[in-house]
Design a protein around this nucleic acid. Structure first.
Lengths: 146, 146
DNA sequence: TCCATGCTGTCAACGCGTTGTCATTTTGCG
DNA sequence: CGCAAAATGACAACGCGTTGACAGCATGGA
C-alpha cells in the first residue's frame, strides 16, 4: 500500500459524524414546521418505503436501531395518530404498525420540501458526484454492517 | 439536469445517518475497553489535534456542538482527571481546558487500536476511493456548514 | 468612562439513542 | 408433541445531544 489509509479513514469518520449532525439539525428544523421530529420523520419514511405495515422489531432492523427505542417512538406516534396498530394475523402480541392518513399527509408534505432543499444543496455537485458518493457510502455501510 | 438529484441525496443522507450509527457503536465499544465513551474520545481528539488548551466554547465550535453539552462533558472529564482546567490569562472565568497525562495516554492507546481497525475496514477500498470519499464529504460539509 | 451587546458557565427540560432486565409469546428442533 | 431458545413489549437507567433561561464577565463604541 502506497499510503496509510488510517488517518484518511479517521477524517471520513469525523466528516460523517459532522454531516450527520448538520443533516439532523436541518431535518429537525424542517420537520418542526409540521410538528414532527426527525426521528419521527424517518420512521414514517421507513414505513412508506416498505409500502406495508411492519412490526416494531422490523422497523428497528430496517433503521439499524434498538427495538426498545423504536417501540417508545412508535407508541408516542400512535398516541399522536400518526401511526396506528393493526392486528397481526401471524402473531398475537406483536402488532403491525401502519401509517395513518394524517401521518401520510404530513410525510409527503415534508418530502416535497426536502426535495427542493436537497436540489439546492446538491447544486455544486454533479449527478455523478452524488452517485459516486452514494456508491462509496454504500460499500462502507455493507462492510460495517456485518 | 439529466436526472433528479433529490432521491439520490436522500439516499446519501440515510447512508450517513446509518454509518454514523454504526461508527458510533463501534467507537463506543472500542472506547469502553479503556473506560471511555465515544463522546469523550472525540473531545480528547479535538484537543490533541489543536495541540493547545482550548476553552469550552472553542471545543464546541470545533466539534459543531452546543457549548452546554460540551461543558457538561468536560466537567465530567475533569472530575475523572482526563482533562484539567488551566487559568486563562485573557479571560477571568472562561478557563482553558488541557489534556492530562492520563488522558493523553489513554487517547493514544485508542488511536493505535483504531488505526489497525480502520486499516482492516478500508481493506476493500483503495486509497483513491477513500480520498474521493473524503473529498466529496468535505464538499458537502462545507456546503451545509453555512 | 459608561453602557449596550455579546460571551460564558450553570441549571433545567426534553428528545432519542443505547443497554439491561423481566414476563410472556412464538419458534423451531429433537 | 414438548421443551429449550429466540422474539417481543414494557420499564428503567444512562449517555449525550438539543434549546431555553439567567446571572455575571468582557468587549467595543459613543
Amino acid at each position: 500500500m502506497a499510503q496509510k489509509k488510517g488517518p484518511l479513514f479517521a477524517e471520513v469518520a469525523r466528516d460523517i459524524s459532522r454531516l450527520n449532525g448538520l443533516l439532523q439539525q436541518r431535518g429537525e428544523r424542517t420537520a418542526s414546521t409540521v410538528g414532527l421530529t426527525s426521528a419521527r420523520w424517518s420512521t414514517l419514511g421507513i414505513l412508506e418505503r416498505a409500502k406495508q405495515p411492519l412490526t416494531v422489531p422490523e422497523i428497528a432492523r430496517l433503521g439499524g436501531q434498538a427495538r426498545q427505542g423504536v417501540q417508545r417512538l412508535v407508541n408516542a406516534m400512535v398516541t399522536d395518530e400518526l401511526l396506528a396498530y393493526q392486528d397481526n394475523p401471524g402473531h398475537a402480541t406483536s402488532k403491525k404498525v401502519a401509517v395513518t392518513d394524517k401521518g401520510r399527509q404530513i410525510y409527503y408534505s415534508l418530502r416535497e420540501r426536502q426535495e427542493t432543499w436537497s436540489e439546492r444543496v446538491g447544486k455544486d455537485m454533479t449527478f455523478d458526484d452524488l452517485k459516486t458518493l452514494a456508491q462509496l457510502l454504500g460499500r462502507l455501510l455493507e462492510r460495517l454492517d456485518k
